[in-house]
């Protein structure tokens, strides 16, 4: 039975185009980046954003502390990871010529 993404339907992996294989590598790196930041923000904020009945939460840089550590810091790191991915990891690939559509 064929499993998703193992591509055994192709029978011969060498038939796969290099650009496709590179796109697939990039796909999984992106999913990894998303997972890392999803776990960070949801788990940290899940534990520390809930102030209950506390009327005086700690304020850092003018914001509640949980916003700084659970949203602002990962946001800055996520943008850095995005820049690394786009400028260093992602490869340029020929996209092919446009076919005449009319």
């Amino acid at each position: 039975m064929a499993l998703p993404f193992n591509l055994d339907a192709m029978q011969k992996p060498e038939e796969l185009g290099e650009s496709f294989r590179q796109s697939k590598r990039e796909f999984w790196v992106m999913v990894g980046i998303w997972t890392f930041f999803a776990i960070w923000t949801v788990s940290y904020n899940g534990f520390f954003a809930d102030g209950g009945s506390e009327s005086d939460p700690e304020i850092l840089f003018g914001m509640p502390r949980w916003v700084v550590i659970g949203v602002v810091v990962p946001w800055i790191l996520a943008v850095s990871a995005t820049i690394w991915f786009a400028m260093a990891f992602m490869k340029d690939t020929p996209l092919g010529d446009e076919e005449e559509t009319e």
């Binding site: 992106m30 998303w34 659970g70 949203v71 990962p74 996520a78 991915f85 786009a86």
Partner: peptide, 8 residues
Amino acid sequence: AGYMVVPI
């Protein structure tokens, strides 16, 4: 917060 990874 999800918008931190929307572009990528």
